[in-house]
Design a binder for these strands. Sequence first.
DNA 1: AGATGTGAAAGTTTTCACAGCC
DNA 2: GGCTGTGAAAACTTTCACATCT
Lengths: 223, 223
Amino acid sequence: MRGARASGDDERVKAALYIERASASTVTRLSGYYRILGEFEAENLETIASERLAERAGVSSAQVRKDLSRFGNFGRRGLGYNVAQLRQRIAGILGLTQHWNVALIGAGNLGHALFSYKEFPKQGFHIEHVLDADPAKIGTAWNGVTIVHVGELPRLARDGKVDIVIVAVPVHSAQTVVDLAVSSGIRAILNFAPGKLATPDGVTIRHVDLSIAMESLSYALVK
Amino acid sequence: MRGARASGDDERVKAALYIERASASTVTRLSGYYRILGEFEAENLETIASERLAERAGVSSAQVRKDLSRFGNFGRRGLGYNVAQLRQRIAGILGLTQHWNVALIGAGNLGHALFSYKEFPKQGFHIEHVLDADPAKIGTAWNGVTIVHVGELPRLARDGKVDIVIVAVPVHSAQTVVDLAVSSGIRAILNFAPGKLATPDGVTIRHVDLSIAMESLSYALVK
DNA sequence: AGATGTGAAAGTTTTCACAGCC
DNA sequence: GGCTGTGAAAACTTTCACATCT
């Protein structure tokens, strides 16, 4: 616990100390603020109060202020937050100022939809590799990207060409693919196969489970 | 607060009183248990202890018991839960014993992937209508389902042909489509467009936001 | 003995409310 | 006067631990 002086310099203390990882819900809200700030920027707003940001995001203004103050003192009392500046700060926090190399595994319908998803490149996520196990697909290309065998993943990862892997394969091969990604040194995975998949510590996996989403709707409908 | 006797008949009291809606995380876990119970059923297991179920679901056994006890006393002390029975109970809670009519709005890449998604019909979600605004698409068919104009939604809804709407349109038309769905009387929406969308009370909306999922990965990667 | 169901405790997240700065 | 930043309070969620039942 060394290094933290008793002085009131919170900014310095915050920068010097290890900041605990934000919770998943904080990060989710941050993503929301980021997008909304883009809208405000397009509307040529210079500054914005937490109240207005909160309104659009569908949360309380205290929540907005707490979320932001976790990462620094971005606002100015009496004024609010500078729209462009805050957006840039959040981009930095979320890692959206970088170029991320993404490998998509699974060249089926879902894979194709993800490959064509326009928002990804806008946020710095570039699907530069498409992999599959089906010999019929290997060698064909999507918009200039040639589909290669999933066995190539370790090589691509070793050459530093993959930051994030998207798993869009059928459920029965999902765990195998995830294991391959992990053993290749990948540390971030977006999984579309239903069910929890085992990953060691240090590997972040996010699940997009369409069945669960639908089930929560049917739960809402069934009286 | 009438009707609840001081007797120990908890089952009766539970059935008589209004049970508050479960939280989103409870419902999510329930979906997970449901799938895992299907696996256990395939393995021909008769009964299962919360401990084993918890292990596969990646939660604590106390969590499993708390989640389940919320809806009734499904287990037998000393024995565990009957696999088939519990699965059936959860199906009832989540509304998976019914046939749900789903209308898909947006016949693009993503729409097509969702239309082809094999898990949906298995859970009782049947995409029986596909709608779009593009005149070039209207009249063409996907696997026997003819694409109709989005303006048909109120009529389909009025005829009781739509329980759930999936919104897979570009972000700029998402709010319009959601408004149309709401005014048509739809009460459950699965939205794939980025950003929060306004819905009145009584309408449940779930968001699948791919950008947010990716951003939470990049947050994990960026030191 | 074995495993559920559940109050009580612990932990986490959100809201409140206001001191402090612009 | 306006609005942030933040401790304290409230609400919610998860875990503990054990009485209770088979």
